[in-house]
Write a protein that binds this DNA or RNA. Sequence first.
DNA 1: TACACATATGAGTATTTACACATATAGATG
DNA 2: CATCTATATGTGTAAATACTCATATGTGTA
Lengths: 103, 103
Amino acid sequence: MSIYTYRCNEVKRMSELLKLLSEPNRLKILCNLGLECRPVTEIVNETGLSQTNVSFHLRLLREAGLVRPERHGKFIYYCLPDAGLLEHLEHLRLWVQQLDEKR
Amino acid sequence: MSIYTYRCNEVKRMSELLKLLSEPNRLKILCNLGLECRPVTEIVNETGLSQTNVSFHLRLLREAGLVRPERHGKFIYYCLPDAGLLEHLEHLRLWVQQLDEKR
DNA sequence: TACACATATGAGTATTTACACATATAGATG
DNA sequence: CATCTATATGTGTAAATACTCATATGTGTA
């Protein structure tokens, strides 16, 4: 890796993205999705959240382009647009884990 | 890069971290710090935020281990513990920039 | 010791955000 | 078309969070 400075570019946009990712239930939804597309009902079952609540969060994620809906018959499948997001989250997780070990 | 799945590990911890990073003024403080250590007054001047507000955010960042205070005489310098965080933020920024271009 | 400057903190308020309830929409199937 | 199932949405409320004001603490210097 060769990027050593974060130049305060687009603080507002970054903040929006991070705020979306920071809600525990949204994060759970995203990582439960993983790289597979899943219908809402399945997300509801896997997360244990109410249907209304899942739809509430999916709307925010969808409007931000973080998930993409695809209708197949009765069901609407939600998917991540690409694997990048999960990768970055995983790197961040490893980073904070190291941080916690040092403290 | 070889990490293709974010396994829902430590959703709570991740959510805490992301919540901290997601506040625009905190993000501004972090990237203004960059890799240099700076006294609070300088952060106040550079960000245009009130002293109280900067201290408020610095406390949260400090308690989470995201910044480290160092007293030098009258001044307390704040520093990032390592460059990793800024790198990850920058990667995320590039990712979301690409996402936005595609939409 | 007294004062000035740098920073932190407690308490109150305002704003944002998550969530639930009730209801609406849209597709499948009888 | 009527009904069932899947999902979305509007509105109200409760909880979380950012911010400000007033004040406290701590350090250097006269």
